[in-house]
């Protein structure tokens, strides 16, 4: 069981200092992506990370134990809060097999509102909106 493919999706609120300039903010996010790529590769975890000034959303998939350990490490990171698991369970196949951590990046500024709305809903009613968050991220990564 512990080695079957397991997946979680969570959303959280971005707490990186809101007064930071957008360059330092982006640098911080870049370092989060890089750190998670390094960590994940060694434990066979793949996934995708979506973020903007307000929210994070992340998919983690892999054997259950490293997925849970990775989540626990992320959970202690004080650069975000209100971490809400919107989906968790065993999965048939990886959605991001080629990515230690894909960056789910919106193609244009216009999509920003839609993304915020989806994540905000997911934080409010996690169980009802987990699927939407996963679909959104798959969409964004493929476009990318």
């Amino acid at each position: 069981m512990a080695n079957d493919l397991y997946r979680i999706v969570y959303c959280s609120r971005n707490l990186i200092d809101e007064h930071s300039t957008s360059t330092t903010h982006d640098a911080e996010l870049e370092s989060i992506l890089n750190a998670s790529r390094v960590n994940n590769r060694s434990v066979d975890v793949t996934g995708a990370l979506l973020f903007n000034r307000e929210y994070f959303a992340q998919v983690l998939e892999g054997p259950r134990t490293p997925v849970e350990t990775t989540f626990e490490r992320i959970q202690r990171d004080r650069r975000h809060g209100e971490v809400t698991v919107v989906e968790n369970g065993f999965a048939g196949a990886r959605d991001f097999p080629e990515w230690a951590m894909a960056h789910a990046a919106p193609a244009s500024g216009q999509m920003e509102d839609g993304i915020c709305a989806t994540l905000q809903l997911a934080l409010l009613q996690p169980s009802a909106n987990g699927e939407d968050v996963l679909l959104l991220m798959k969409d964004l990564v493929i476009q990318d």
Partner: peptide, 17 residues
């Protein structure tokens, strides 16, 4: 306050939230 915040964050244990 930090301890309270950290402890009340979600745990994933053996597939349970």
């Amino acid at each position: 306050q930090r301890l309270i915040d950290l402890v009340q964050r979600t745990y994933l244990i053996e597939g349970h939230v």
